[in-house]
Structure formats: C-alpha cells, structure tokens
C-alpha cells in the first residue's frame, strides 16, 4: 500500500491545487460516512461508555464505573481470555498450515490447481456455515467420536464441543480450516515471486531445499506474512458469527467472546453502558495493535526519507 500511494503521489506533479466542484461533490458521500459513522459513532460509543445508560442512552457522567463493572464481570473476563487464546492459536495455526500448504504446492506437483481450489474453498463460505458444519462434524454423539468408535476404538472420546475446558479449541480448528487457505494463497504468490536465480544459486551451493525455505525464502516472505497476520487479526477481533453458530457461547459461558458480549448487552440484556465500555475496550486493543504497525509502515519511513 505504502509504495502504491507513494508512486501515485510521485506521478502527480505538485501543480497548484485547483478546487474542483465535481470532484469534491463526488467525495462528499465518503466524507459524510467518515465523519458521521467512522468518527461520529465511534466518539458516541466512547462517550456512552462513561454514562450510566441502561435500556436507553443517557448522557450523564459516571466516570469509569462501567469499566470497573466490566472488569469484575466474569463473562467479560472469560471472553477476553478466550479471544486471546483463540487469537494466538488461530493465527499461529493458519500461518503454519498455510505456509506448509504453500510450500508443498510449490513443489511442482500435479493437479496443483485442484489442490489450491480445495484448500481455499472454505474461505468462500460464511462463518455461520463453517460453524454449523463443524458443529455437526464434532457432534459428541454422532460425529467424529462415533466415526472413530466405529473403527474399533470403543473408548475414544471426543466431546470438546460440550467440554468447558476444550470448547475454545473447537473454534480454533474451525477457524484454521476456514482461514489457512487465505494464508496459503498470499504466501504462494510470494513464493512465486522469489527470484529464480536465487534458487539456482542455492542449488549450486548445495543447500538442501528445506534449508532454502527456512533461511532464504521465509525472510523474503516477511511482508506477506505481516499482511496475512493483519488480515487474520482483524477477523479475530470481529469473531462473532462463528461462535454464535457453532457454540452459542456455550457450554455455559465457556466460549463467550468480546464481540458477542457487546452484542448481547446491547440487544438482549439492555445494558448500553456496559456494552459500550466493552466495545471501547475492543477499540483500544485494536488501536494498541494497529499503532505500532501504522508507525512502522507509514510514519517512520517518511521520517527517514526527510
């Protein structure tokens, strides 16, 4: 992105800016959306988190009372714990599996296109469909457990879906199934972009293939891995549909996540204050992740050039 925008700016000579009515008019809808929704609604939400709003929004000021309530709320704490666990495992899982898939597909295999299609198709489906499919596949009585038992392993148990301690891992499995094709796709494009001479040089130096991938190719894929992590991370923060469809936060509240916490408190539990406080916490955590990245990518390079 950065390079693209720079190229565009370099290409447009710094002529005197002429005010163009039509161009300004064309940007008006986007400007309204940015001002009203992306800025206005955000500020509004943050403001409400400092109020005592329940069913209806009120604009009083209760300081950080909602936040102290939030951090005393077991449901929220479990949500946070779950999203961290899910996030780490989901991103790591997608990266590792996606990288392996990309590398193995890159070995000049037959029917490469078929494999690529198979590995990516889950990404085309919604999280609701993904959640329901895995809910059925991992069904503790009729699903995977029964398949393995039918094979003769009578005592095999796989009840993660209804096990409070394990249910998050079922979300991770479904998530990795859904998302690793994306990583494969991004990394495969990166692998195909590696200078062919580099491979030749490594063959002449007698470097084993796995070592080339690890020591030479992987560092080259850095920017693509960052891209993949950013994309995966945004879907972690937005994680909602998958949970609703697959576990509905259960058993009990064992698989609650922040997005669902916010939604439930907005629309079912009618606790606007608490919901906006949780939403603001989500905003802060995203900003905390985003800030260093924006800094590294857009602000620091410009400083260096100056």
């Amino acid at each position: 992105m950065a390079s693209v925008s720079m190229a565009a700016e370099a290409a447009v000579p710094r002529t005197r800016r002429r005010w163009n009515a039509a161009a300004s008019l064309a940007l008006l809808p986007a400007a309204v959306i940015v001002l009203v929704v992306y800025l206005g609604c955000m500020v509004w939400t943050v403001r409400l988190s400092f109020s005592s709003s329940k069913l209806l929004p009120v604009l009083d000021w209760v300081g950080v009372r909602q936040y102290s309530r939030l951090f005393a709320n077991e449901r929220f704490l479990i949500s946070v714990e779950n999203i961290v666990l899910f996030g780490v495992l989901f991103i790591a899982g997608c990266l590792v599996l996606g990288f392996l898939l990309a590398v193995f597909i890159d070995q000049k295999v037959r029917s490469e296109a078929a494999f690529r299609t198979i590995f990516l198709y889950p990404y085309a489906m919604s999280f609701v469909v993904t959640g329901l499919a895995w809910q059925w596949f991992l069904n503790p009585t009729l699903g995977l457990q029964k398949i393995v038992r039918d094979l003769g392993f009578e005592s095999f148990t796989f009840d993660w879906l209804v096990n409070q301690d394990m249910v998050v891992y079922t979300l991770v499995i479904a998530g990795v199934w859904h998302g690793s094709g994306l990583v494969m796709c991004i990394l495969l494009a990166g692998l195909r972009g590696v200078d062919e001479d580099l491979w030749k040089a490594a063959r002449i130096d007698g470097i084993p293939t796995w070592r080339v991938y690890l020591s030479i190719v992987l560092p080259l894929l850095g920017p693509m891995i960052v891209t993949a992590v950013v994309l995966l991370a945004t879907s972690v923060v937005k994680l909602y549909d998958l949970v609703v469809a697959m576990t509905h936060g259960g058993p009990g509240i064992a698989s609650e996540v922040p997005a669902k916490f916010v939604m439930d408190h907005f629309f079912e539990r009618n606790n606007i204050g608490l919901a906006t406080a949780a939403a603001t916490m989500m905003l802060i955590s995203v900003a905390a992740v985003l800030a260093p990245w924006v800094y590294a990518r857009y602000i620091r390079p410009q400083g260096r050039r100056a």
Partner: peptide, 9 residues
C-alpha cells in the same frame, strides 16, 4: 480494522 461493535449502537 475497527470492530463493528464500536459503531453499531
């Protein structure tokens, strides 16, 4: 990148 929940209500 911002979660939708921030804008919804």
């Amino acid at each position: 990148f911002i979660p939708y929940q921030v804008f919804l209500y």
